[in-house]
Design a protein around this nucleic acid. Structure first.
Lengths: 352, 352
DNA sequence: CTTGTTTGCACAATCGATGGTGCAAAGACT
DNA sequence: AGTCTTTGCACCATCGATTGTGCAAACAAG
């Protein structure tokens, strides 16, 4: 068992080995050595030793001293969803490219959980926090604010700091219009045949609903209140709403606007319970993109939110000095049925 | 601007406020105060102050001193995939329930990246590392070993520490058999009509292929080599393989075993390029579960790996003192077409 | 040779929490 | 009252890196 085998080398070890002081070693290894007028030859020696002894800085020590950690946090509602997991994937790539370390945590859409999670992250002295899809962004803002932590909202806006969100109104309009136009002119959709399921009383849902209603009124001439069925995000609640509709009308609406892919799973569950229905006249629009959903046996028009665009914008905005709490809208994209788009995974090389 | 508003309270602040020493404050707030014979009334006072001043311990300082961080790492290939993201979701729940903080990072299936990522995590003094789906688990093991970090493999096995993986051989058998039996007796599948696409030279793929070939030989009497098409995991490579087959034979095989949902996306891309084909006689088996894929317009039989079971087992094994480097197999589950299963998200309450 | 300047680095305080050790005051006992 | 215990806590070194400051040696200028 050689000496290099068990504990990690520190600047003190290298200091002894090199014959210089710990502060010199530190300066060399963190790049501030020119500023400290360290001789190139000394620096080279130390770099060499660091390499052969596999030195890596103890981030906790560094963070303690400098009150920065190199960690950048992303607070998500859930991982288990293509939209949010592609958010995580994209976020990670950006953070890594800045030489920092991403830390992605979910908080289940629970305001209390969101705040507690943010506090946990803060206790690790994270340097920045991206708050994505939070139920209570301003609550999280409070806890960031008291410790002076830079943060920004994504996907759902807050009122205290900038927010980068999908243009849900336009997206809602696009999707609604696409659903309506998908029906042939000789069998047009009636206003009471186009329903919206899913979502709840958050900014995104409200905007989508606003777009939905506006387009319905413009294109179909009417917009009955009963066609809006906000079920929350839980798949089972969505399923129950479909069941209830089906009970009452003996069929599904011809046109269905579903607020998110998670809600869409509720429709699948409903369908699994009705194996002999073939839902031949059904057209679905879903505010989220999933490649498999796009190929379902009925027309599924989808919205793909521009995750890359949102993350990029968020990084831009958060770098600004004193950003105003304005809302940055990122346009989503309409995806026709049977479309297989590429995603962040395609950027990866496939070894082997 | 009150004094509480800007910087975080430390034990020194509370020490002044309470009139006790920092070490007393520390002991009270980290639970070791009984051992230190602190008076209950003193403890109560300090707890009170901590509460009103919103004290939370600086984890970096604690970690520096104790060389533990409270962080538990999960190293994934990618986030952007239902299998791995549900891994993340489940992992997170387990870690949080132990009062620790999950840190989930992806390494793109790149051995070099995997090692570097592990080192980064180590520099934050993480307490344990779960290595999931790593291309080179033993490489990661090396870097963990040199610093004495407890770790375990999930999904793909290593040889140095315990591994908890899906029973890929059995799963491969189940899925292959289900595909074969899905064809009616009067139009049975011939051996050269059942292909396997995707995967590469890793343990999981090999085992699945072994199961696939064994069942083919048992049930169909033959098992031509050409029916195995390992394309790697990239969707586009899988697409190219389907294109190539289609070029050559003018159709797809009647039965297709796809190694993962990521590869399945390659099939979708192929299909998007052949809009007028209806692939009426196609049956797909996919080694992964995705609710939307399950409802595609052709029969899709899926395997759902028991993520909850694997994570639970992994936590059990890692707690053991000196676990042997054996492989723990977790049985996956066969999922019939048009099945909408619940997932980790269903455990969440839906607020609002 | 003296004075000033630059070069190159060492010293030591510091970040916040932990835990071993020591010691005064209070209580128990003879 | 004197000694021994127990109680209750303070003191201080420590984890590993950062950073402001100081200072000797080398060199330049006069």
């Amino acid at each position: 068992m050689t000496k290099t085998s068990k504990k990690k080398a520190t600047i003190y070890d290298l200091s002894v080995l090199s014959g210089s002081s710990p502060s010199t070693v530190s300066a060399v290894l963190n790049g501030t050595w020119q500023k400290r007028r360290i001789k190139e030859s000394t620096a080279a020696l130390i770099r060499d030793l660091a390499e052969t002894h596999q030195y890596t800085a103890n981030r906790q020590a560094r963070g303690l001293r400098s009150s920065r950690s190199g960690l950048i946090g992303l607070l998500l509602p859930v991982h288990d969803n293509r939209y949010f997991s592609s958010m995580a994937q994209t976020f990670e790539a950006h953070v890594r490219s800045k030489g920092q370390c991403p830390i992605v945590v979910s908080a289940s859409r629970d305001p209390e959980e969101e705040r507690k999670t943010a506090e946990t992250l803060i206790s690790y002295s994270i340097d920045e926090l991206f708050i994505c899809g939070a139920t209570d962004p301003d609550g999280v803002h409070e806890v960031c604010e008291t410790v002076g932590l830079r943060h920004i909202n994504i996907d759902l806006p807050g009122t205290k700091v900038p927010s980068v969100i999908s243009d849900n109104y336009q997206g809602g309009r696009m999707l609604t219009e696409a659903i309506i136009r998908h029906f042939p002119a000789d069998q047009p959709l009636r206003p009471d045949e186009l329903y919206l399921f899913g979502g709840r009383d958050d900014h995104a849902s409200r905007e989508r609903i606003r777009g939905f209603r506006a387009v319905k009124r413009e294109l179909l001439g009417d917009d009955p209140d009963g066609c809006i069925q906000p079920t929350g995000y839980a798949p089972n609640n969505a399923r129950l709403a479909f069941e209830a509709f089906y009970e009452k009308h003996g069929k599904l609406p011809r046109g269905v606007f579903i607020n998110s892919s998670i809600n869409f799973e509720g429709l699948l569950r409903f369908m699994a319970g009705h194996p002999h229905e073939n839902f031949a006249d059904l057209t679905v629009g879903c505010y989220d993109y999933d490649p498999f959903a796009s190929f379902l046996p009925f027309p599924v028009i989808m919205i793909r939110q521009d995750v890359e665009g949102m993350i990029t914008k968020a990084f831009e905005v958060i770098e600004e000095g004193r950003p105003q709490p304005r809302i940055h809208l990122i346009s989503p994209e309409l995806v026709q049925p049977r479309t297989a788009l590429t995603g962040p995974l395609d950027a990866l090389k496939d070894i082997g």
